[in-house]
Design a protein around this nucleic acid. Structure first.
Lengths: 220, 220
DNA sequence: GTCTATATCGGGATAGAC
DNA sequence: GTCTATCCCGATATAGAC
């Protein structure tokens, strides 16, 4: 009496793979549903049976990214030094998203519209965002980094914003293998960790206050 | 013997206006060439006579932005205080581009491909970029801001990068009238000017070196 | 439930008549 | 310089085979 067939999930997977392949090659707009269906060796109708729209494939991509990224972030949480951990955490995203870099860039065109389900800043990617922030908090905890009390509740989010600006740079970095972005990651991390240590000093309270004001504005 | 007719430039202008209007209302993808031609009260064929492609309209938009922005930047160059000048220079861009904010956001989707003529970072917008950087240099000069010798050749570009990150935030800022971005501009400027003053101190040389390293990576 | 075939619509772009 | 007609293609809906 089972209503489920065996082939369904496989076919869905095949179509998703084909779509991501083509998005990588030709970008989101460049790949047509006909292309996708052809590459997956199914009819366009079937592709629409599994994914109601091209957009729906993007949502499936976010979902899969979330699932795949979690264990990678888990792995990155080793080492006693903060710089080391942060570099691993951020580099893990560079690596994972590298094949889809151009495709993600194209998705940024929808970011201005927060209502768009395709926006990397919108609701669909919130789960990823929250998990990432928690991982930054954990990196701070497990490396026993001392953080001033006023800064402490906001530092993980600050690190996430720092990460996002790096990812933005990486997305639009046309250098070979995004070498510049990778170098920027390492070099800026040195500075970031230095600033975190510096900010722990009691006499830096006024400086912390200025930064926290900025965080508040961005979050409001 | 004139080969030019009278009506040409007017028709071109009419089509450009209609296109920008519709881009503002429906975004770049949302506005079709048929829409544009209809609003301009011409045939689609004629629209293509003046603009070889939809992209070409965007290039005309960049060109016009360059022409329109120059006098506005000129106007912004008043006042003795650096913070004041920088705020005026950057706010001028917020104001000018405000009606086209969503449209510019959509264009960011093409930024990952530097070959795309639509990318706000590409060749077409280089003239604007160079003019902006020169205006930052001028603001530093005319407010007699003291800058360390090692930092001096790079500070205008650094300010431009700072501006670009603000503009990026502004582009994706969904708050009413981009109020958050405006508040961030004012608040972060306080910090930026403070840092510039701080960086002038001789004992800050190591810190300057770290920052210059980052600049070098970004520019390479 | 899984899949094919086909029809319709709207979008970018072009050819060629006037 | 301007228009009409047309091409090609992607999105979408649906009829119906298995």
């Amino acid at each position: 009496m089972s209503k489920l067939s065996r082939k369904g999930p496989e076919t869905l997977e095949k179509i998703l793979e084909a779509a991501l392949d083509l998005f990588r090659e030709k970008g989101f707009e460049g790949a047509s549903m006909r292309d996708i269906a052809n590459r997956a060796e199914v009819s366009t109708g079937l592709a629409y049976y599994y994914f109601n729209s091209k957009d729906a494939i993007v949502l499936a991509f976010y979902d899969r990214a979330y699932r795949d990224l979690l264990p990678k972030l888990e792995e990155a949480q080793t080492g006693k030094k903060l710089a080391e951990r942060l570099e691993r955490l951020i580099a893990a995203k560079f690596e994972y998203f590298a094949p889809n870099r151009r495709f993600l860039g194209a998705l940024m065109g929808h970011a201005a519209d927060p209502a768009s389900p395709l926006s990397p800043f919108g609701e669909p990617s919130r789960k990823i965002r929250d998990a990432e922030i928690e991982h930054f908090a954990r990196a701070l905890r497990e490396t026993q980094t001392s953080v001033a009390a006023d800064l402490e509740p906001h530092l993980p989010k600050l690190l996430w914003m720092y990460q996002m600006s790096l990812i933005l740079f990486w997305m639009y970095d046309a250098s070979e293998n995004q070498a510049r972005a990778t170098r920027l990651l390492t070099a800026s991390l040195r500075m970031a960790v230095m600033l975190i240590r510096l900010a722990a000093l009691p006499l830096m309270k006024p400086a912390r206050k200025v930064v926290l004001e900025l965080v508040e504005i961005v979050e409001s």
